[in-house]
Amino acid sequence: MQQIQTGDHQAFVKLVDRHLTALHKFAQHMLGNPTDADDIVQETFVRVWQKSQQWKPQAKVSTWLHSITNNLCMDFYRKIKVKTIDITDVELITTHQPATDQQQQDVTAQVQIALQQLPENQRSAIVLCYYQDMTNREAANVLNISVSALESLMARGRRKLKKILQTQSDDLLGEI
């Protein structure tokens, strides 16, 4: 990161190669579709290059990158003013899994929609800890909140998910 601050393009290439997949996954879980995730990740790296001077050596690079992506996702939501997500808004990714079990695909679609129905900060907390495998301290740093506030967001988020999915998934996966 320090090399990027001096304008080293090769260091930037390495950074992109190291973090592109993780950031794309994060943005995809946040926004519900890979197309918007492409735009957000692209903008993330443009900002990293332009604002590399703002990175401080005590901050973990992945934490800093995730916080930029998270802020861009929040801006994205504010811009399009999403109040409720309809099933048609979520670009379901069905081509990357075997299309053998229609019922399983339905469940997947319901989970994706349920995730999009969570308030953004609860979704951020769950995605960072659950999907990005961050520790609670790292995720709290990304969101700039305390660990207890993060835990509260995650608990509320999971409870809400459970409530949304409860009626839909009982048949397939039993009690949740």
Partner: peptide, 12 residues
């Protein structure tokens, strides 16, 4: 069970 549902979300 909830984790299993969350894990079912595919990522491109």
């Amino acid at each position: 069970n909830l984790d299993k549902l969350l894990d079912s979300v595919p990522i491109a």
